[in-house]
Computed example of a mutant assay.
Amino acid sequence: MPLPLTVLQLLAIDLGTETLPAIALGREPAEPGLMNRPPRRRSEGVIQGAMLARAWGVLGGVSAALVLGAFFGTLLLGRWHPGAATGPGSALHHTWQQATTMTFLGIVVCQIGTAFAARTHTASLRAIGVTSNRLLLWGIAFEIVFAAVIVLVPPFRAVFGTAPPEPAQLVLLVPFPFVVWGVDEMWRWRRRRARTRSRTTLPGG
């Protein structure tokens, strides 16, 4: 089974595409309705089970499924089969490079959906507005340009081992951020609904 991402591509994500959006999220204002919630218990930790379920199960799980689907789809369309050689000089080496590039680009576009979703804990994106965090928009623009340079500029392609995907493959990536954000939006809607129900069941609610 070939690796879906090379070491340098992974570093390009960790140290390149993720950096500015992460900084921008750190500057995100408090979400609407925060002061209407009861204070947290003293024994409640910063990292909670619901937070991990959202990060790993919802955002991470959906992103992983989409990205791996793009990776294996690219390999299979290139007539790859388990055990087939994909190293330098093999007939499938270019196909594998395209597949890892799809993984790289898939993670980048899923980061965009995750960034918009992570702006709030429970409130909807409509409540805060898409363009209210200008720093995040600049960070997303930077990561798109950074990823394009790695995939399209020949010297960078040689270093990072990428290969430009076909136009149809790039079109496949377009829905990824909307799927990631949409699933998380439903998750947050259910949490808001559950919180509203718990309030109405309290004495005097």
Rank of each mutant, 00 (worst) to 15 (best):
A24F: 10
L25E: 11
G26Q: 09
G33A: 12
N36D: 13
R37D: 05
P38G: 07
R40W: 14
R42C: 09
R42F: 12
I47L: 14
I47W: 15
G49Y: 12
A55D: 08
A55H: 09
G60C: 10
G61C: 13
V62C: 08
S63W: 03
L68H: 15
G69D: 06
G69Y: 02
A70P: 04
G73Q: 00
T74H: 00
P82K: 02
A84W: 02
S90E: 14
A91S: 12
H93Y: 04
H94P: 00
Q98P: 01
M102A: 02
T103H: 03
V108K: 00
I112T: 02
T114E: 02
T114A: 01
F116C: 06
A117N: 05
R119L: 01
S124M: 08
G129W: 11
L135D: 06
L135G: 06
W138K: 13
E143F: 03
E143P: 03
V145S: 15
F146Y: 12
V151S: 04
P155W: 03
R157P: 08
R157T: 05
E166Q: 15
P167N: 09
Q169H: 04
V171H: 08
F178M: 12
W181D: 04
R188Q: 14
R191N: 07
R191M: 11
R195T: 06
T196G: 14
L202H: 12
P203A: 14
G204H: 11
G204S: 15
G205T: 08
